[in-house]
Design a binder for these strands. Sequence first.
DNA 1: ATACAATTTGACTGACCAGTCAAATACTAT
DNA 2: ATAGTATTTGACTGGTCAGTCAAATTGTAT
Lengths: 217, 217
Amino acid sequence: MGRSPTDTKSKLLLTAADLIWQSSYGNVSVDDICKAADIKKGSFYYYFSSKAELAVATMEESFVSYELEIMNVLSPNLPPIQRFEALADFVYEKQQQAYAKYGRVCGCPCASLGSEMAGNEQLIQKKADEILHRQSDMLKETLQEMIDSGLLPPNTNISNIACQISTSILGQVMMARIQNNLSNLKNDLKISLFQTLGLKTPISGISTMLQEQQNGQ
Amino acid sequence: MGRSPTDTKSKLLLTAADLIWQSSYGNVSVDDICKAADIKKGSFYYYFSSKAELAVATMEESFVSYELEIMNVLSPNLPPIQRFEALADFVYEKQQQAYAKYGRVCGCPCASLGSEMAGNEQLIQKKADEILHRQSDMLKETLQEMIDSGLLPPNTNISNIACQISTSILGQVMMARIQNNLSNLKNDLKISLFQTLGLKTPISGISTMLQEQQNGQ
DNA sequence: ATACAATTTGACTGACCAGTCAAATACTAT
DNA sequence: ATAGTATTTGACTGGTCAGTCAAATTGTAT
């Protein structure tokens, strides 16, 4: 029954995600989104009950597609250390693509939105928190393999290291957005990841690592 | 000539800094600030030509007072390694005080504002960038001492390490704000700082460090 | 063809926004 | 006292905001 389904909802989601990523939640109005998507405001509120609900939906949608890409980057075909190198490269390239497309460093959509709205919209704060946890969880499998193969000590706290790595990436990506400059991200992200893992800095590209003893306390 | 000077301007600055720190630039209106400071909007625009100009002024003001505290924490009375421990403790305590006062983790005012407005208000973006550089510069003196006393290799790139440390702190403080949770900040900040310095994790409080060789490439 | 359901439209509301301004006030120097 | 200046006030503007809604449209099933 009814009309045939359309792409209206996903068009709104994609448009909103783009606009908010470049700018911010507060600086993008529902009217802006509707105008950019060429959809009337009435339709917007047919699909979303509020602007905040839309924001939460964009966060989920953006993260799911990001998750797929990351799963590919962290593919078990590569040895674990090279996976982390690939991760750092991926994060940088993603920002560079956004820079080429939008003319500025955009940062992490979830973190920017989360920080902006943390004190005002609990729905958004909770969603940001959830996604950051999911992001961190994606690293656990690779870390477990590193323990199994002796690259990390057996008493390593996997959750904790995963969290530290996520936090480190978040810091560098945020800094890049604030400074509107990608050079530190390009140069330091890999170094920082390997330090968190307790490994020496890789000689660019060639993963000839020396393992450092890292004791949990 | 004229009336005697009043504290109107500084009252506006302090009130605005507080409100924006807890919430965000976009979610705090000029009316909100005036109401909280019990000052009429006409007076606001007597002292500030725009909301963005006020924001820039609060950033400068907040940073200058922060700078004084940091200079004290990094006081040359302590050995360099203990200074960094004290820095980590200070950052945590500062957030805890804000939590007690405002009921939530507030994060870094400069970074939150900078991220929020980076794509919209160039004045704010530039100010955030400037302050992050000044913050990073404050670490250089201590790092130089560490080189001089052999705690860091002589070919260490001081600017780069200072920048990495600032970025690391920023990441953890931002993460704490987004998650509204201080436990990771408390536990991981010190670890992360020492990893960036290429030093082993200190055994809590007692700075019996082992130095790691850290080669620049 | 017609009834019914899903979707779209555009005009609307009332609140709030940043910013303006002429007039009032309060102080100081003479 | 009075003239001049610094500061404060409150009422105002025009625009934008999130959100509403009744009516129109477009499809589908019978």
